[in-house]
């Protein structure tokens, strides 16, 4: 858990980067710091591991004031991922990943076992990559290594500064999915900086929307999309925020609330979609094809029903009006 109490960052009399912020990142949650450039999101992140000093207020990490610890010790306890992955070209992949355990004085055996475990987590063969160097890896692989490096000493808290920002869209989406998968297993408390709205909606359990160092809204992605608190929030998420909010819901959510339609066998050449797909992809499929329905299949590939635009609209209506509450997957 990370708690921000009246946190302020002042560079001089005129320039204040962060103004009296108060919020809490719950244990095991991902909170995305979102906002236009210059809103203070990276500064705020870097204040947590004291790469930036705190002018006023305090930051409490798991019930310990960040100023009570020596900065070096604090940083070893907090995982840190940066956009350009920051791997050290002179070290092998294993040395890179094991930097913090090495600084903490782990034994060779402990490091080796941890390395093997972490590499399997991101689907890379530890034997093949152990002795390789960063320049021999693709951008996506390097970024995966950057992420597991932050996980190496199993820190309870992680800071991620636009970790996937430098990747191309296809790889980025893949790594985001992978990371959410990993997060389900490791359940870290994560502060995540992003300027990408779609990324924030996808990755965040909650979003802190910042402007000029002030919090505009701190809420779950769906609350923020459906109930923006002020003009800035609704403008920031754009006119298509209803469509964006569709990516927060899966076909399964819809099925649980209003049920699927029957399959109309009269319609030929219909496409199928997995029940775990989100509604945004479903809607684009429906709009892309002539037919009025898409067949829904479960994980075994069984056809369990169909979905139509009307159905999605009906579901959305319930959701926005807040008549029904549905558990949402970030």
């Amino acid at each position: 858990m990370i708690t921000f109490n009246h946190v302020t960052k002042r560079y001089n009399e005129e320039k204040t980067a962060v103004k009296d912020l108060n919020f809490t990142v719950e244990k095991g949650n991902i909170v995305v710091l979102l906002g236009p450039s210059g809103c203070g999101k990276t500064t705020l992140l870097r204040m947590v591991n004291r790469l930036e000093s705190i002018s006023e207020g305090n930051i409490v990490i798991n019930e310990q004031d960040s100023m009570d610890l020596n900065a070096i010790e604090l940083r070893r306890k907090v995982g840190y991922v940066i956009q350009s992955n920051g791997l050290f070209p002179n070290m092998t992949i294993e040395e890179n990943v094991m930097i913090v355990p090495d600084l903490l004085g782990w034994t060779k055996k402990e490091k080796r076992e941890r390395f093997d475990y972490l590499m399997k987590l991101i689907g890379l063969d530890p034997k093949i990559y152990r002795k390789r160097f960063p320049h021999e890896l693709s951008g996506g692989q390097q970024q995966r290594i950057g992420v597991v490096r932050a996980l190496a000493a199993d820190p309870p808290v992680m800071l991620m500064d636009e970790p996937f920002g430098a990747l191309d869209p296809i790889i980025r989406e893949k790594i985001q999915d992978e990371f959410l998968q990993i997060q389900r297993e490791v359940k870290k408390t994560i502060l995540f900086v992003s300027h990408d709205i779609d990324e924030a909606i996808k990755m965040g359990d909650k979003i802190v929307l910042l402007r000029d160092g002030e919090i505009m809204q701190y809420d779950t992605p769906s609350e923020m999309l459906t109930h923006p608190k002020n003009e800035f929030v609704s403008q920031f998420f754009g006119k298509d925020r209803a469509i964006k909010s569709l990516s927060l819901h899966t076909v399964k959510n819809l099925q649980e609330v209003i049920g699927l339609a029957h399959i109309d066998d009269a319609i030929e050449d219909t496409k199928t979609i997995n029940v775990n797909q989100d509604l945004r992809n479903t809607i684009s499929m429906l709009l892309n094809q002539e037919a009025d329905q898409v067949i829904v299949t479960d994980d075994q590939g069984e056809r369990i029903g169909s979905i139509t635009i009307d159905l999605v609209q009906k579901y959305l209506h319930f959701e926005i009006k807040g008549k029904l509450s549905v558990s949402q997957e970030g």
Binding site: R75, G86, F88, I99
Partner: peptide
Amino acid sequence: PEMRDAAIGMGMKTSQ
């Protein structure tokens, strides 16, 4: 500088 930032952020002392 990003490499330096990563090194500091991971808790290396200046000598390390």
